[in-house]
Simulated assay, not measured.
Amino acid sequence: MHLWTKLKAAAIALALAVGVLGAQVAAAHHGWGWTSDEEFVLTGKIVAVRLGNPHGELSVEADGQRWIVEVGQPWRNKRAGLDDDLLSIGRELTAHGHRSSNPEQRLMKAERIVIEGKSYNLYPDRAS
């Protein structure tokens, strides 16, 4: 019985550690903690699309480089007026937001998207 109690305690401790680490990793990526404080603007053509939760991602070709541009969750995109047709392959856009604080990553989180001269504000409570 004593060995079983130790194994059970070890399993609980491991599960808690994995849960805490997982939450830290998720928090590090989602939200704004992983981005730089500086405003960033990227103009390019959409070459791949993955929409859905926890957020959409657009692969954008800009100046010969491929960038990942995070857009909002489906409800946020819809609220901003961005439907799936606007976020389609071949469409040119300008994304305003913040890039990764890691300069080696070509990754940004968009606050606002401009397509065909129309602005779609994903985060109206943030200045962009």
Score class of each variant (00 low, 15 high):
Arg91His: 07
Glu57Cys: 04
Thr94Lys: 13
Asn77Ile: 07
Thr94Trp: 09
Leu86Lys: 11
Leu93Ile: 08
Arg79Asn: 13
Gln73Ser: 14
Val69Trp: 07
His96Thr: 12
Arg79Gln: 14
Ala80Met: 04
Glu61Leu: 13
Gln65Tyr: 07
Glu70Ser: 14
Arg79Pro: 01
Ile89Cys: 01
Glu92Cys: 00
Gln73Cys: 01
Thr94Phe: 11
Leu93Trp: 03
Gln65Met: 14
Asp85Ile: 04
Gln73Phe: 10
His96Phe: 14
Arg79Met: 12
Gly81Lys: 10
Leu58Val: 03
Glu57Ile: 12
Pro54Arg: 02
Trp67Pro: 09
Gln65Ser: 11
Val71Tyr: 06
Asn53Pro: 05
Val69Met: 09
Asn77Val: 07
Ile89Ser: 08
Val69Asp: 10
Ser88Ile: 02
Pro54Gln: 05
Asp85Asn: 13
Pro74Gln: 02
Leu82Cys: 01
Arg91Ser: 12
Glu92Phe: 06
Leu93Gln: 08
Asn53Phe: 09
Leu58Arg: 03
Asp84Thr: 13
Asp63Ala: 15
Leu86Gly: 04
Arg76Trp: 05
Glu92Val: 10
Ala80Asp: 06
Asn53Thr: 12
Val71Asn: 01
Ile89Arg: 12
Gly64Val: 05
Leu82Lys: 10
Ser88Leu: 01
Glu57Leu: 11
Gly72Asn: 03
Gly81Met: 07
Gly64Ile: 06
Trp75His: 12
Arg76Gln: 15
Arg91Gly: 06
His55Lys: 03
Gly90Ala: 10
Asp85Thr: 09
Ala80Glu: 09
Leu82Thr: 05
Leu93Gly: 11
Ala62Ile: 08
Leu93Tyr: 07
Asn53Gln: 10
Gly72Cys: 06
Asp85Gly: 07
Ala80Trp: 09
Glu61Trp: 01
Arg91Asn: 12
Glu61Ser: 11
Lys78Phe: 11
Gly81Tyr: 10
Ser59Asp: 15
Ile89Asn: 08
Trp75Ala: 13
Val60His: 02
Asn77Glu: 10
Ile89Lys: 14
Trp67Val: 01
Asp84Tyr: 01
Arg79Val: 05
Val69Ile: 14
Gln65Pro: 00
Gln65Asn: 14
Ile68Gly: 00
Pro54Leu: 00
Asp83Phe: 12
Ile68Thr: 15
Val71Ile: 10
Arg91Val: 15
Gln73Lys: 15
Ile68Asn: 13
Arg76Val: 14
Ser88Trp: 02
Leu58Ala: 00
Val60Glu: 04
Trp75Val: 13
Arg91Met: 14
Gly90Met: 08
Asp84His: 07
Arg66Lys: 15
Gly81Glu: 08
Leu86Trp: 00
Arg79His: 14
Val60Trp: 06
Gln65Val: 05
Leu87Trp: 04
Arg76Ala: 13
Val60Phe: 09
His55Cys: 01
Trp75Thr: 11
Thr94Tyr: 05
Ile68Tyr: 03
Ile68Leu: 13
Ile68Ser: 15
Ser88Arg: 13
Asp63Val: 00
